[in-house]
Structure formats: C-alpha cells, structure tokens
C-alpha cells in the first residue's frame, strides 16, 4: 500500500533553489492532512550538511544521494535514482517544482512508472484520497481542475506560487546508496548567466517592451536592482535583439508569477499576458492610455517610462532613506 509523500528538491550552485522550500512546505501541508510522513530527496555533491536545512520546512526525513558524479544535473542518472527511490519506498504522492530540469525529471519518472502527472500546478487539494491539481491552460486563458490518476500521483508545482513556511520538525537525514546509471548526454561546458536570480523565482520582475525603443534597459535595471528583482522582456523586445531569449515572458517564453510585475512600455498582447497574468500585483507604465495592458494591471500610469521609472526608483530610495 503506497504511503507517504516524497518531494524532490533542486540543489544547484551550492544552494537550494527557493522553490525547494516551497515544494517541501506544500508537501508538509498535504502530509498533515493525510497524516502521512513527508520525505524530501536531495541529489548532489557535498549536499549532506545543507540537506538538513529541509527539516526546518517540515521534512520528517531527508533522503540524500551525495556523490561527485551528481554535482551536475544528468537526466538519465537522476531519473534512474528517483525511480529506484520511488519503487523502494512507494510514496502515494510525489511533488516536484517546475524548473526546466525537474519538469523533465518528473515526466520521465511518470513515464517509467506509468503514473499520472500534472504539470505547472498552481494549487493542490485533496478530495478524499485523491490529489486534485489546479493548473492554467491555453496561455493562462483557462484554469483547469485536473484529477491525477494512478500511483503515485505526481504533481509539479509552479515556482513562486506556493508559500514556503518554516516549522519545527524532528526530522532525520538518511544517506541513500545508489547505482549510478550511465549518462548518455555528456556535459561539455556550462555557461552560467550573469544574473543569479532566475526570472521564475524573482519576487519582483521589471519588464520592458517595444516602448523601450532600444537595447538600453538601464532604467529598468536600476529599479530591478533596488528591489532585488529580475528583468523581463516581451517577445517583440527579444525579436528586436534588445534582450536575450532567456528574458522573454509570455506564451512562447517564461511564465512568471512574482509578487510585483512592472510592465514598462508593454502594450499587453494576450501572448504576453499568458506569461504574467497570475502575478500578484501588476503595474503598467505606458504612454498610450488605450493600451490593453491597462485592462489587466492593478495600477496604471500614463506617461513616458524614461521619466517615470527613474522617478519611481528615486521615490523608493527616498522612502528607504527616511526609514
């Protein structure tokens, strides 16, 4: 009889992704409702000490596979280890966070197990024994309630949506032995991006569109820097070559849900809304009072972003100095 909840966390560049805490916290919430134990899995190199941190988010047990060959992500190796862990421990629910890496891992695991999978979930609920997921479809135009069939039930949670909450937990850390599978995809070179802050995990995203008029995003960068946020861009800004593709927010880019989204010189095409419509608070700055973005925004300012964004930055700085 499957029992327990297993959450898979992502440890990269000597730290947990923020979404790791979110997924453990959501696992804790479900484990309390089902009165079942919660285990968190960490795969990496030199992770044993850091792994204990997950106890503070409610993991009853932290399962650690620690080996030099797990330092870099390898889809084959990681899938095979997770498959072994899941088939040995038989959890009823497995949770992942929807990073590029773990979307792939979760899918391969589901295929191997012939299990059900719900991707990019924005809510989870238990109806009796069954896990029901909420997820957006059709470019965030619709919200679906989805039943996950089979066992285990696998859900992949959208980052920045589920709250991370620390709790007292008397968990333990268990080292798990594993057989390293052959890596069929060989890593030749890694090129880290200049910014350590991932767009999908940022609390604040300051985005620019066609209204930027060119590749100079420095006014947005100053505001984002002050707020500890990340820079986003519309498809047209990316197509113009003003920003890298990695910055694109929208239906053919990243889907973000920060607490604050500042849309600068963005008209508000539906394809862009698909990538940021679920943000907590949306501020739109545009010279065109009829821009569709004002239909979706919480706060709108009509005017030039080149006047307004520096003024907003200055105002936030001023307030901070007063404090």
């Amino acid at each position: 009889m499957p029992n327990g909840i297993l959450v898979v966390t992502e440890y990269a560049d000597e730290r947990f992704r923020r979404s790791a805490y979110e997924v453990v916290s959501e696992g804790r919430r479900l484990a309390n409702q089902l009165n079942t134990p919660l285990s968190a899995v960490v795969l990496g190199s030199d992770v044993l000490a850091a792994a204990a941190e997950l106890k503070h988010y409610g993991a009853d047990r932290v399962l650690v596979c620690d080996a030099p060959e797990l330092r870099d992500f390898d889809s084959d190796r990681f899938t095979s280890i997770l498959f072994d862990i899941v088939t040995t421990r038989q959890p009823r629910i497995v949770l992942f966070s929807a990073s590029i890496r773990d979307k792939q891992l979760a899918t391969r695991l589901a295929a191997k197990l012939d299990a059900g999978l719900a991707m990019e979930c924005t809510g989870l609920a238990l109806e009796g024994e069954k896990l029901i997921a909420t997820r957006s479809m059709y470019g965030s135009k619709l919200i679906a309630r989805v039943a996950i069939e089979g066992s285990p039930q696998i859900a992949v949670l959208r980052p920045n949506v589920f709250p991370a909450a620390t709790v007292e937990s008397a968990g333990d850390v268990e080292r798990v032995e594993f057989k390293p599978a052959d890596a069929r995809v060989r890593l030749i070179e890694k090129k880290p991006s200049a910014s350590k802050l991932d767009l999908t995990e940022a609390d604040v995203v300051v985005s620019g569109g066609r209204g930027m008029g060119g590749p100079d995003f420095s006014v947005l960068e100053r505001l984002a820097g002050l707020l500890g946020g990340a820079i986003g861009a519309t498809r047209s800004a990316v197509d113009e070559g003003w920003r890298p593709h990695a910055d694109q927010v929208g239906q053919t880019g990243k889907v973000v849900s920060p607490k604050l989204y500042v849309a600068c010189g963005i008209s508000g095409a539906v394809q862009h809304m698909a990538g940021m419509g679920l943000s907590g608070c949306i501020v739109a700055i545009n010279t065109d009072p009829d821009a569709p973005i004002f239909r979706y925004a919480d706060y709108g300012i009509i005017g030039s972003l080149f006047d307004l964004v520096p003024a907003i930055t200055q105002e936030i700085e001023r307030r901070r100095e007063v404090k």
């Binding site: 619709l142 919200i143 039943a147 069939e149 919480d298 709108g300 300012i301």
Partner: peptide
C-alpha cells in the same frame, strides 16, 4: 487509460479594475 483527467475548466478570476494614478 487516462492518467490525467480534466474535471472542469473555468475562466481565471477577473482582476480588479486598474487604478490609474
């Protein structure tokens, strides 16, 4: 044979009317 089944679809909640500053 379905492993995920859509139980229901709905439109996302309407955002509040934009406050123009």
């Amino acid at each position: 044979a379905l492993k995920t089944r859509i139980l229901s679809l709905a439109f996302p909640p309407q955002r509040k009317v934009c406050k123009m500053i």
